[in-house]
């Protein structure tokens, strides 16, 4: 069975380390915050200028001056810091954020990512995505393995305009955990009950499949 959005977030959360500063994109990446392993502390960075993002506020604590990068009202945890946008992107572009999780339309075997623009459709902008992919060493892309018509999103060459070049090495999809290295995809894990054949069939770029492909484990 393909992973649900929640399971996908759970698998990504297993990559977190105690003491990590983490930037989570909009969508599935946001859900990762719900599955931080017990006894572990991570600090969430929101690129509008907040390090130490907390949960959504209550009716009593909601404050229009307190939002996240998705423009949602949020809170700050004790020990949080708030700063301007240049400071925020100095953290991101300077490589100080330990882990970045974001979605994508396409990735390819060179580690290129396309996530912001579909020609012919209205372009809303890249926001902070280009800075995040250019600045972080440790990025996990989360997305479905194929689009809704069954077309692979793991390609030999991205077809859409790029968000960043040669910057992605880890992809967690609803079917598999894939590493990008030496110009190829490497299959590390498969979703429980998903066959290696299905993953091969839905991966357009060159895929290296080891003899034994373990299933993802969920507690």
């Amino acid at each position: 069975m393909a992973l649900t959005r929640e399971q996908l977030a759970m698998r990504v959360a297993q990559e977190l380390k105690d003491g990590d500063y983490v930037n989570l994109g909009i969508g599935i990446p946001t859900l990762v915050a719900n599955y931080v392993p017990e006894g572990m502390a991570v600090m969430l960075q929101s690129e509008n200028g907040l390090l130490g993002m907390g949960p959504f506020p209550t009716e009593e604590t909601v404050d229009p001056d307190m939002i996240n990068a998705g423009k949602q009202t949020v809170t700050a945890i004790p020990g949080a810091a708030i700063f301007d946008s240049a400071q925020s992107f100095a953290m991101i572009r300077g490589g100080h954020v330990d882990l970045t999780v974001l979605g994508a339309f396409e990735v390819d075997v060179q580690g290129n990512i396309a996530s912001w623009m579909i020609p012919g459709k209205l372009v809303k902008g890249m926001g902070g995505a280009m800075d995040l992919v250019a600045g972080a060493d440790n990025i996990i892309v989360t997305m479905t393995h194929a689009d809704r018509h069954g077309n692979s999103k793991l390609l030999s060459n991205c077809t859409l305009p790029l968000t960043g070049a040669n910057c992605i090495s880890k992809v967690v999809t609803d079917l598999a955990y894939i590493e990008i290295r030496d110009g190829r995809f490497h299959l590390l894990e498969r979703a429980p009950g998903v066959s290696v054949e299905e993953i091969i069939e839905k991966t357009a770029g060159e895929l290296v499949v080891p003899e034994h492909v373990p299933e993802m484990r969920f507690e």
Binding site: S85, S88, I92, R93, G127, G128, M130
Partner: peptide, 13 residues
Amino acid sequence: ELTPQGTLAEKMR
């Protein structure tokens, strides 16, 4: 002129 957010901040700075 769409400009990456960090680049926009740095352009102002």
